[in-house]
């Protein structure tokens, strides 16, 4: 999920546009991370050195690694190490944006380093999906520090984002704001226990149809009862896995109510103690999840 938040970071800092980010999210599955990006990430080469190697490659018929060694930027051992290094999602996204011409190597270097330093992230956190740090990134992005039940909400968002990656796709970025039309379709489900929550998911017809198509693994064409049923089942599955997690971690038993389809304005009018919105921008459109404590 650090990849998705790297996308959000690039968007929030206005380093890339929403359209280009969506396009990169769509294209990244076919991207091959090149040696230059790997070397920048490992701190073995600066972006300027990578650019110099690329410039040289245009004039000689040699591999990038060999040129970098000849120019004294890398040792042969470092080349071998980099080529077998794990290509984490952030690097794939960065490489896609560089390939698209939306980022220079230098801008990528700067953005990746500031993203890592802002959230105190190390390379190994990316490959192990460090839970504690994921919680910190979620808390900071959704400004949960002043929210009651912040740990529980953060756990909910963590599970939600993991389930989105697992069942819908990794081509999304959490965003701060996203307007939902009052007439947009929504599905709600109550979670009750020591505290009571109303969870929901809402989106435009187009976004809901594509979201449901991916979850059901069949191409749906209308926002009909079946599409709402599929979205509703995703919410139920997510909330079910959340209750299992809470039960395993803290021994607290939460109950779920059957889901209900409604419109987004009904969710907006709920009398809640507080509401946390989790809008996510997929390449096919925006989907907004909400968690309200009632």
């Amino acid at each position: 999920m650090f990849t998705q938040f790297f996308g959000s970071y690039l968007l929030n800092k206005q380093i890339v546009s929403a359209d280009n980010l969506k396009k990169a999210m769509e294209l990244k599955s076919s991207t091959r991370v090149k040696l230059g990006v790997l070397a920048i990430n490992a701190g073995y080469m600066t972006a300027k050195q990578v650019d110099a190697v690329h410039k040289m490659q245009a004039t000689v018929d040699k591999r990038i690694g060999d040129i970098a060694v000849e120019m004294g930027y890398l040792t042969p051992e470092q080349v071998t190490e980099l080529l077998s290094a794990q290509k984490t999602g952030c690097l794939v996204l960065g490489q896609t944006l560089v390939d698209m011409g939306c980022l220079t190597n230098e801008e990528f270097e700067e953005a990746l380093n500031s993203y890592k330093s802002e959230h105190h992230l190390e390379d190994e956190d990316f490959s192990t999906e460090n839970e504690k740090k994921a919680g910190n990134v979620i808390g900071s992005f959704f400004k949960l520090s002043k929210t009651a039940n912040a740990d529980l909400i953060s756990e909910y968002i963590n599970i939600l984002l993991k389930n989105l990656i697992r069942f819908i796709g990794d081509d999304f970025a959490p965003i701060n704001e996203c307007a939902v039309q009052p007439t947009d379709t929504a599905v709600t489900q109550n979670i009750s226990g020591e505290s009571n929550f109303v969870t929901s998911v809402a989106g435009s017809d187009k976004a809901m149809i594509e979201f449901a198509s991916r979850y059901a693994e069949e191409q749906l064409t209308e926002n009909d009862e079946y599409t709402k049923d599929v979205v509703s089942e995703f919410l139920n599955l997510n909330n079910g896995l959340f209750t299992v997690n809470v039960s395993n971690n803290s021994g607290k038993e939460l109950k779920l109510s059957p889901q209900q389809a409604c419109t987004a304005d009904k969710v907006a009018k709920l009398k809640a103690k507080y509401t946390v919105k989790v809008p996510v921008a997929f390449s096919f459109g925006n989907i907004v999840f909400t968690i309200c404590e009632v």
Binding site: N239, G240, L241, S247
Partner: peptide, 9 residues
């Protein structure tokens, strides 16, 4: 057959 396989359930 459920997603809420908590100990309690």
């Amino acid at each position: 057959a459920t997603s809420i396989g908590t100990e309690g359930n």
